[in-house]
Write a protein that binds this DNA or RNA. Structure first.
Length: 174
DNA sequence: AAGAAGATTCGCT
DNA sequence: GCGAATCTTCTTA
């Protein structure tokens, strides 16, 4: 949920990827830097960074304070503020508003201002139980990475049209 | 000190 | 299907 001056937008998280301790693909793997320091905050804090110099990607820290790890939020099913998301994204296709990590931050207007925020506390940007849980969750390899590429650390709601990438990538229980 | 790669998306061929 | 956009960090000289 993001409450901004322009209006409120919210969505159901339907796709995530875990970046865990000892994971060469995790930005925190080689220790804290100015960019990734939020990954070392207590679980539930935002880590937002600029990817390829173009797109912001939104993560949630997932370990204790001082331990660097997080979860990348890759896709949302839009709930509130769909009209505002359509303006921000420049498309009317609801399915494409937040299908993909870069698109999601545009639709929700998330950027480095939100880096380090406590997403479980009062504030403009937060996580909550505002919608139903997924009926079925599938796992697959993570998308777009080269290091530690075969770990099954991508999780998504099976059958959701709001999940990014080819749906056939998913193979549960491998 | 400079160059390359990286958790992406969009537009053109 | 390929390349551009262009920031941060890592690698190598």
């Amino acid at each position: 949920m993001h409450e901004s001056r322009a209006g409120t937008t919210s969505g159901r998280i339907v796709e995530t990827e875990a970046y865990v301790v000892g994971d060469a693909a995790c930005h925190a793997f080689r220790g804290p830097t100015p960019r990734n320091r939020s990954l070392f905050l207590e679980r539930g804090h935002a880590y937002v960074y600029l990817n390829y110099g173009v797109w912001y990607l939104f993560n949630v820290s997932s370990e204790s304070h001082g331990v660097g790890a997080g979860v990348l939020i890759r896709a949302l099913e839009p709930l509130e503020g769909i009209a505002l998301m359509q303006v921000r994204r420049g498309t009317d296709r609801v399915r494409d508003l937040a299908r993909g990590p870069g698109r999601l931050t545009v639709a929700m207007d998330i950027d480095r201002r939100h880096d380090g925020l406590d997403l479980c506390a009062d504030g403009p940007l937060w996580l909550g139980r505002i919608s139903r849980p997924a009926a079925q969750i599938a796992a697959s390899v993570r998308i777009g990475i080269t290091r530690d590429a075969d770990r099954m650390l991508r999780f998504y709601e099976r059958g959701s049209p709001f999940v990014s990438g080819p749906v056939r990538l998913g193979r549960a229980g491998a």
